[in-house]
Design a protein around this nucleic acid. Sequence first.
DNA 1: TATTCGTGGTG
DNA 2: TCACCAAGAAT
Length: 408
Amino acid sequence: MPRRKAAPPAEDQSAESAPHLAFDPAEFSARLAHWFKHNARDLPWRNIRDPYATWLSEIMLQQTRVATVIERYVEFLERFPTVTALAEAEEADVLALWSGLGYYRRARMLHRGAQFVLREFDGKLPRTSHELRTLPGVGDYTAAAIASIAFRERIAAIDGNVERVINRVLGWPEDRSTKARAALQQVAQSLVPPLLSPRSKANPPGDHNQAMMELGATVCTPRSPLCLQCPVVEFCQTRGEHITAPRAKQKSRTVAYLLAIRKRGTSTEVLLHKRDAQQSLMANMLELPPLPMEAVAEREPTLRLRHSITDTSYYVQIFTESAPGVPPHHDPDVIDEYHDELVVATPDDHVDSSELLPQIAASAEALQWHNTKLLALLPLTGLARKALQRSGVMLVPRPTLAGLPPLE
DNA sequence: TATTCGTGGTG
DNA sequence: TCACCAAGAAT
């Protein structure tokens, strides 16, 4: 049913005043609120009273799945519990905690944002969406989300979920034009319930925004929506998937990296390349040294993996060169033994007969040996992290036991 | 306004 | 397997 060319909504839908709806907005939001009260997931950033934590959660959640964010959010808050702590941190340390989450600009903006808040707002987040919008990395959605959730402002937060829910309810096709977005914004705003009374501790606007997103994430899903479980199905024109625009086609590329290992005294080191600060992609982050494809022609990689970045699939080949005695590749099941083995290293072993080392497509200043035991503290790219873990050089983090039932 | 930013789960 | 796309923002 989807996959058709989008048509603009009718003219009268973009009116400036409150849009005419085929149902009562108060009834809609009441149904939604009741559903949310009984179906809200228990997430770490819910029921907290720290605007900084709400801010952090909203930045992390940008284009990132809830399940992915949960652990990182807790870890980040422990390391940087306040605006001040974050503002005073080194960017590399912030990036290290963000490693693997992607969209690293978010981490840099958040870091700069904390410094901005410390300087301009005395370390306390501004309380209005208008002022929040001035923070680096905070756009319309995030400003509205923080203002409504942390400060109970009556403003609609419109993310991909909300957009999809409203389009389906009204039977509108996907349309990202300015006019269509303004129309959708009007509708979204008209659905946000007001505060009950100045004395009530409840937060109808914040709960409503979260409920709309929750509905989109768990019921009104992009494909195969669960309309039988939907609290607002009776208001819905579509009751199923709506018309969406076609996506860009996926490209693919083959790339190669060097995994060079050496020993220094009792420690083992791996060679990493620091990406240039001017790079638009993952600036200042550490990766495995890149190899030109010509250098590895005819060679068989020690490890192959696939890694996709937005609309490009990378077929990644890893070529290992290591000091004598260091296994080039290990079974992930024996990682602990492998590390024990590496600690008992032969002094002064080094990669002296390397063929690929001189072929690295990077300047020597950007290359540095790093102790494998400290890799978790470094701002590694997701791909580097994945390659280092799969090859047994970097310890795979233990799954957390929090939230699991106790052992009998 | 259209692109560019990462990564991983999912059907 | 593979296309899809997630609590968007900046440029």
